[in-house]
Write a protein that binds this DNA or RNA. Structure first.
Lengths: 241, 241
DNA sequence: CGACCAATTTGGTCAGACCAATTCTAACTG
DNA sequence: CAGTTAGAATTGGTCTGACCAAATTGGTCG
């Protein structure tokens, strides 16, 4: 899970997952730092660093007398990744909410981008959409192109708030999906239609149209991902038998 | 800034602000833990805890050889609050981006809420909008009602991802605005129009209409807040003379 | 000038200690 | 017996000083 192989990160990761698995009730007191140190065969310092991280994540509150577990929905976005990774398959509902949110932000980005784009940026965007139209067959290549397109939109829109959120979400989500090898399948016809809509939006500098198109794009993606997960789920159950 | 009065939080807060003030270039190495400890008259342990927090914020990366400063736009949302609080007045552009983002998420929330609301929840929503229509004069009361309305929308929509983001954003933003005493002024006529639109959307269960209405509501708010900040700015400059 | 090796620095971790504030316990009181 | 309260045990916050492995640095040699 955590790339950095330090003990404190390790401890933080373990405790985080335990909390996310709701093995502690909200408001409950975590074991004392000394107890945790004993349990993990580590020094108190290492445990304190771990707790410090969990506090930053909003999972616990440390105060004299003991560290207390907070409500999950008071935490930071950074817990979403671990939360999805806890079970073998991510919670489909959570994934759906994820894509909804991502879609809304992408739509906002598209709107701003078109409103602010310079002539040159506009040409670049049109070029990218053009290329988006081809490669309708190869899924991998297409996904890459889409991501580049969205990335460039973000650059043009230049909204720090959205960018920060996007970073977090991407870090939490995309990686998960990749690991699971979930390949959403979208109908070529639908894609072509969306691309055409995008072209039109760019040509006429219609920010609203671009926004709704992106929105629809993500709605399609949501459905496709949902089906992909269902499939995976079925195959897992098959294995279990 | 930081509520918790521990030394490690204090150090983290100071270093964070220095980094946000770009007193370190990206990729640059932070002073060593020992040096920092000497500078802050603290133990290395306290410094390490502070650095641990900054790492969680995405501001730095700690690795053997030294802690290096990361690009601001690779950080977590949690830095937005401090970022806005660095100058006497928050950067208007940042505030605007903030509200845009918040608006997009609120619109999404409204859409989902209406799509998922039970009959009882629907009645509650209608009641709240009804009350929203009154009190058009008293700004404080109205703001409270709006916030309750949005809060309830979030409850109904029940989207964990949006909720987590919203938590962060609110924690970072609303508090700042409050502290500065920025009172955006919106035309009563506009408000009335928006409320009517909301009523209609609820009555006909039109999720799209609700979403766009909320969107417009925030667009109005953006303009109002922008003006309010300009005013403040002018008064500050007046003081300086 | 570039490759290589040794000394130094740096982060990671540990052990043990002290303080102040909180929490717990048990005796005490009405 | 319930409620209060004083004292003991626990807990987080911090410090000191130490050791290791990896990385950085600086000088030396080809």
């Amino acid at each position: 899970m955590s790339v950095n192989g330090t003990i404190s990160h390790e401890i933080a990761s373990l405790l985080r997952d335990e909390i996310l698995r709701s093995q502690y009730r909200r408001g409950e007191r975590l074991p004392s730092e000394r107890d945790l140190a004993a349990r993990f065969n580590a020094s108190r310092g290492a445990v304190r660093e771990a707790l410090s991280q969990l506090e930053q994540l909003g999972l616990i509150r440390i105060l004299p007398g003991g560290a207390r577990v907070q409500a999950i929905d008071a935490a930071s976005i950074a817990i979403l990744g671990p939360l999805m990774a806890i079970d073998v398959l991510p919670d489909p509902l959570l994934v759906d909410q994820f894509l909804q949110t991502f879609g809304a932000l992408a739509a906002l980005t598209a709107r701003s981008a078109i409103n602010q784009a310079s002539n040159e940026e506009m040409r670049n965007l049109q070029g990218m959409v053009e290329r988006l139209g081809k490669h309708a067959g190869d899924f991998g290549a297409m996904q890459t192109r889409w991501r580049e397109f969205l990335e460039y939109l973000a650059t043009v829109a230049d909204n720090l708030v959205v960018r920060l959120i996007g970073n977090d979400l991407k870090a939490q989500f995309v990686e998960q999906m990749m690991n699971l090898g979930i390949n959403p399948v979208m109908k070529p016809a639908t894609i072509k239609q969306l691309v055409n809509s995008l072209k039109l939006a760019l040509a006429s500098k219609d920010a609203e149209l671009a926004a709704t198109t992106i929105q629809m794009q993500f709605d399609e993606l949501r459905m496709a991902v949902g089906e992909a997960i269902s499939l995976k789920q079925a195959s897992y159950q098959k294995q279990a038998v």
